[in-house]
Amino acid sequence: MPKHLLNPNKWIDLYADYLFNYTITRVNDKEMAQDLVQETFLAGLKSMKNFKGEASERTWLISILKRKIIDHYRKINSNKGKAEVRITYNSDTETEGDWLEEQVADPFDKTAEDKIQNEELSDAIYNCLSKLPEKQATIFRMKTIEGYETEVICNELNITSSNLWVIIHRARTALAACLEENWF
């Protein structure tokens, strides 16, 4: 008997943000990331009968998403090489013959280690977030990640502001404890 079952009706609520965050750290384009997430869900739906129940739902969806991301890079890479534009040579004596664009410092250039750490960190946060009760996770996400005003959240979810702060407090305590174990 399979241990894990698939329930596509809850996929979007449970995993959309996690998959989106996972994708955006890897493709760096919001629209593209959304398309990839959507494709992943659809592909998951189509191949539901191939799910053996060995991995959790989320792991399974991530493995589909990884394929999609690789496919995406294959697709753009085949055209990218042809369309590369070099601007001009540098005429300074010292650096003669170098491409101009190679001398510009890339403001987004971080060390690879930094980048990996960032990716792993946000994965870890989502991991911990998914362990919280749904209400806590939703409110924490709206407040901290999406940055909504307290009032907006209160109106939307029909709670009082003191109620909201209690929930935030619980979420923060649980998150800190979880991250303490897995990250700090």
């Binding site: 997430v37 960190l121 946000s122 923060r172």
Partner: peptide, 13 residues
Amino acid sequence: LSSVIKHSKITCM
């Protein structure tokens, strides 16, 4: 926790 979250540049849809 706040600084970690800020540092991670976590996003959602």
